[in-house]
């Protein structure tokens, strides 16, 4: 009976609150993550040497940085460079940067799988390279990237637990509290899964 009460009075409301925060976060993160991923992928495949190199660096960096560390850097690290972000903005930015890096790999693979020559054929009809990529290559590539990118979205939804706590404050800062207090408050550890 006590357990049921605990679930009803504490766990469920906390989870519900977390759910709402998650939804708010992903509503912003998913579209911008897709756009970032597409831009990085296109830059990497069709950009000139320096753009392509920059995009590669971007992917290596953000794929290689654990998301929690990235969020810490954005929220705690940036203020020392004079950029202070709200906890929500820091979280969304972190998710977009990370999600964009992963998405770009799926989209890059999809771009390269589009049957060769269609870009040339489009250019031979008088399209600019940008027009050809936008009208011919991307519609095909994005369709092929759907399975991979939707995986990433699911990860994103679960990762959003990194950015909230039951204490109403959408902040990575409180994650530290959670980590510190985990032994005192077992409920808090629910929110740092994954």
């Amino acid at each position: 009976m006590d357990d049921l009460l605990f679930i009803q009075k504490d766990v469920l409301p906390a989870l519900l609150e977390g759910l709402i925060v998650s939804i708010k976060l992903i509503i912003w993160s998913i579209p911008f993550g897709l756009v970032t991923g597409t831009l990085i992928a296109v830059g990497r495949v069709y950009g000139n040497k320096s753009i392509s190199f920059f995009c590669k660096l971007y992917v290596i960096f953000f794929k290689g940085t654990p998301l929690l560390i990235l969020l810490f850097m954005l929220y705690f690290g940036l203020p020392s460079m004079g950029i202070s972000l709200s906890p929500f903005a820091a979280s969304v930015l972190g998710f977009v940067l990370c999600n964009g890096a992963y998405n770009s790999e799926y989209i890059r693979g999809a771009i390269q799988s589009v049957k060769g020559g269609q870009l040339i054929a489009a250019q031979a009809l008088g399209m600019t390279r940008a027009q050809a990529v936008w009208n011919i290559i991307l519609p095909q590539a994005l369709r092929r990237a759907i399975p991979g990118c939707s995986n990433e979205m699911i990860y994103l939804i679960k990762y959003s637990s990194l950015a909230y706590t039951p204490s109403r404050v959408v902040t990575v800062a409180t994650i530290i509290d959670i980590v510190h207090n985990a032994h005192k408050n077992p409920l808090a550890s629910i929110n740092v899964n994954r």
Partner: peptide
């Protein structure tokens, strides 16, 4: 060049139709 390319229609060995 994009104007000239319109004026020179090109047909390829492997068609290169837009698959989608």
């Amino acid at each position: 060049i994009n104007f000239f390319r319109q004026k020179m229609g090109m047909v390829f060995q492997n068609f290169y139709l837009f698959d989608h």
